[in-house]
Amino acid sequence: MAIVEVLVPVAATRTTAHPLAARPARLAGARIGWLDNLKANAGALLDGIAAQLAADAVAPALRMTKNATAAAPEAVMAHLRTCDAVVLAIAD
C-alpha cells in the first residue's frame, strides 16, 4: 500500500463577533419592530409569531418591509431604531 501525504483542502475559518444590542428585561410593554423581507410567506410567518406574542407585547408594534435583495434603507432603519426589539423574517 503506497501512502501519500497530501495537504488538506479545507481552509481554516475566521469569524468576527459583534456584540448584540442590549435587550429589554421583559417583553411586556416592549415595542417590537417586525421587518418583512417580502419573500413569499415571510410576512405570514411574522404575523404568526406576532399573534403568539400579542399577550406580552402591549405597546403598538411597528411593521416595515425591506427588499430581500438589499439591506434595509436608512429610512427603514431609522424607524426600527425607535423599537425595543426587532424581528426580521427571512424566507426562502
Partner: peptide, 22 residues
C-alpha cells in the same frame, strides 16, 4: 403550516428578544 411553524418558534423568539444580551 406557516402558523404552526410560527407557533413552534415563538418561545425561542421571545428568549432571543429580552434578557441578557451576552
Amino acid at each position: 403550516l406557516v402558523a404552526d411553524k410560527a407557533a413552534a418558534i415563538a418561545g425561542e423568539v421571545v428568549a432571543a428578544l429580552c434578557g441578557d444580551a451576552a
